[in-house]
Nucleic acid binder design. Structure first.
Length: 573
RNA sequence: GCCCCCGUAGCUCAAGUGGACAGAGCAACUGCCUUCUAAGCAGUGGGCUGCUGGUUCGAGUCCAGCCGGGGGCACCA
């Protein structure tokens, strides 16, 4: 990476300066290299001299000058400046920058990839909604975060598994079955409520319209044959129907999971029991008040937690711990869990449980995202799946799908939804205004980015159709002819991708991608204004070919950024 | 009461381990389509970064205390 190379050059320079006596001898700390906010401060800048003032016992500016003078010659740098109060500003050379257009073209869709994963196995667990109803907007943020983090980890050199963890047993699923059964009996003409214990709608039942849909389809296939059945077959049917719906929604959202992990399998394989036994053996599980407790206080918790209720039923903690033991057993060396803010207090127990078993827990990362604060007409909407007060992801995707009235070309609704969610940091408590999202969908920044991609596709198409370029790819062309400031700005912005990916991966902060994509698109649009690409003038041909290569490189980087975000990169809009 | 997250332009949000004048988009206003897509470009206005102290060469960023919003503090998941 460029920044690392520059940091290395600066360190060499500082050492040379010490050998030459321009700097006093002392142990050099790692020298920082940053991206200055202001363009006049160069492409990169180091404030190292400011922090070296104390150990060197010298004025920062003098230190900066000494380092600047000893930077080894390199064709990468065009200008090196030491400026008050002691910054070293570094500017990349135009010739070097121009050559990078070729480098990007050669890298193709691998441009921006890193090797920090070195092929290690990573797992991202997300969505993980139990099959009690359709996916709601509330789940959407986690879905985007998980998917894009998985994409980023793949780009960073990890072998990634996307995993969906669910529980199809337990109380909520029973209530789901009972709800469907009640609707089924209602459709058969049994009176609800008060129709005796056969038909009463469960007090905490799911009231959504989809319960009727499931009941109706049971009625269609089985007629009245299930009238005497208890809730269990209804639960089975409901689970199948809800999962089919969830899978369809996820696919629409551009999401594929590699593994669907059923919590029940942990019981079937005995992993739950073994985990509990191992915790007991190590003295981290004990009996009290008829329950089994986890000694969470040994890991800094304020009180111990229940693992197995006095009813004999485990709490969520035990399977969660067993599940993570299972993950580690499958060889994952990097594990990312995406949770909503309501699960905030859950993971410390899980991490502690893993530690209690003597297993490594440092590789387990948890992203807690805040809730989407759904707003309609400026008023907050409280969502509850059970009370059928929710907006499904499907509904949302329908609403924001936008068609260009002039060209008739439609873009999928997943793009604006993903983009909106990817402009916010997971920590941010965001307001998602439904009306606003719909109303402004045509001016959503996502289209701005996609438009840049389509514009490039159009230029390349035009170049080919007008005979200016032989194939669909600009094979020839000497990028050394690129010198225009707008061209240089474009290359600079493209080169940033690697650092953005690094940032986004190491900080698990995918929202950097969307901001980068907007920047890159803006830089391209400015280039488009300043530099005409296709020309029929014979004298313009060499520069045209060079610019076609530049533009093709830009298309790659835009497609890469959009691809990492799971969005389409349209050829036409 | 205790713990975690957030508070930045009218609105929605950014801001790499503390760095040089806090940035985008939307909304508002002014210009620009006979030439590769105007879903575009150029420009204008808009900020005591919730408040008060502290740390230091330097704070939106770190510390303390307040105020306001969200989430949690289960033998629910």
């Amino acid at each position: 990476m460029i920044r690392d190379e520059l940091a290395y050059l600066l360190t060499q320079a500082a050492q040379d300066a010490q050998r030459a006596g321009a700097l006093p001898p002392f142990d050099l700390p790692p020298l920082s290299v940053e991206r200055p906010k202001q363009a006049s401060h160069g492409d990169y800048a180091s404030a190292a001299a400011l922090s070296l003032a104390r150990p060197a016992r010298k004025a920062p500016l003098q230190i900066a000058q000494a380092i600047a003078q000893h930077i080894p010659p390199t064709d990468m740098l065009g200008k090196v400046e030491a400026v008050p109060p002691g910054f070293i500003n570094l500017t990349l050379s135009d010739a070097w920058l121009a050559r990078q257009a070729d480098t990007i073209l050669a890298a193709g869709m691998t441009f921006g990839n890193l090797d920090i994963g070195r092929g290690r196995k990573a797992q991202v667990e997300f969505v993980s909604a139990n099959p009690t109803g359709p996916l709601t907007i509330g789940r959407t943020w986690g879905a985007v975060l998980g998917d894009v983090i998985a994409n980023l980890l793949t780009a960073a050199g990890y072998a990634v598994t996307r995993e969906y963890y669910f529980n199809n047993a337990g109380r909520q699923m029973r209530i789901l079955g009972e709800s469907v059964r009640a609707r089924y009996l209602e459709l058969l003409g049994h009176s609800i409520p008060g129709g005796g214990d056969t038909g009463a709608f469960p007090e905490e039942g799911y009231q959504g319209e989809y319960i009727y849909d499931i009941a109706r389809s049971i009625l269609e296939t089985h007629g009245s044959a299930w009238a005497e059945e208890d809730w269990q077959p209804f639960k089975e049917a409901a689970e199948a129907a809800v999962f089919a719906n969830i899978r369809a929604t996820l696919q629409r959202f551009g999401l594929e999971f590699d593994v669907w992990f059923n919590e029940s399998s942990l019981y079937a394989t005995g992993e739950i029991e073994r985990t509990l036994a191992a915790l007991r053996e190590r003295g981290y599980a004990y009996d009290a008040d008829g329950a089994v407790w986890f000694r969470a206080t040994a890991f800094g918790a304020d009180k111990d937690r229940v693992l197995v209720k006095s009813s004999g039923e485990p709490t969520y903690r035990l399977p969660d711990i067993a599940y993570h033991v299972n993950k580690l057993g499958r060889g994952f060396e990097y594990i990312v869990n995406i949770f909503g803010a309501d699960h905030k207090d859950e993971y410390p127990d899980v991490i502690a449980g893993v530690r209690a078993l003597g297993l490594p827990a440092d590789c387990i990362q948890v992203i807690i995202h805040q809730f989407i604060n759904l707003v309609r007409d400026g008023k907050q909407v409280r969502m509850s799946t059970r009370r059928a007060n929710y907006v499904t992801l499907d509904d949302l995707l329908d609403e924001v799908t936008v068609t260009n009235p002039e060209t008739g070309i439609a873009l999928p609704g997943k793009d604006p939804v993903r983009f909106i969610l990817l402009t916010r940091s997971p920590d941010s408590t965001m307001n998602f205004d439904l009306e606003l999202a719909k109303r402004q969908s045509n001016e959503n920044p996502v289209y701005y980015v996609q438009y840049a991609h389509a514009r490039i596709a159009s230029i390349l198409r035009f170049a080919q159709e007008s005979g200016a370029m032989a194939g669909s790819v600009p094979a020839e062309g000497d990028v050394r002819l690129l010198t225009h400031p707008a061209e240089m700005a474009l290359v600079r912005k493209m080169l940033d991708l690697q650092e953005v990916v690094e940032q986004a991966v190491t900080k698990l902060a995918p929202h950097h991608l969307s901001h980068y994509a907007q920047d890159l698109a803006a830089t391209f649009h400015a280039f488009y204004r300043d530099c005409r690409v296709v020309s029929s003038e014979p004298g313009d041909r060499p520069l045209m070919l060079a610019r076609l290569r530049l533009v093709a490189a830009t298309q790659i980087v835009l497609a890469r950024a959009l691809g990492l975000m799971g969005m389409t990169a349209p050829e036409r809009m």
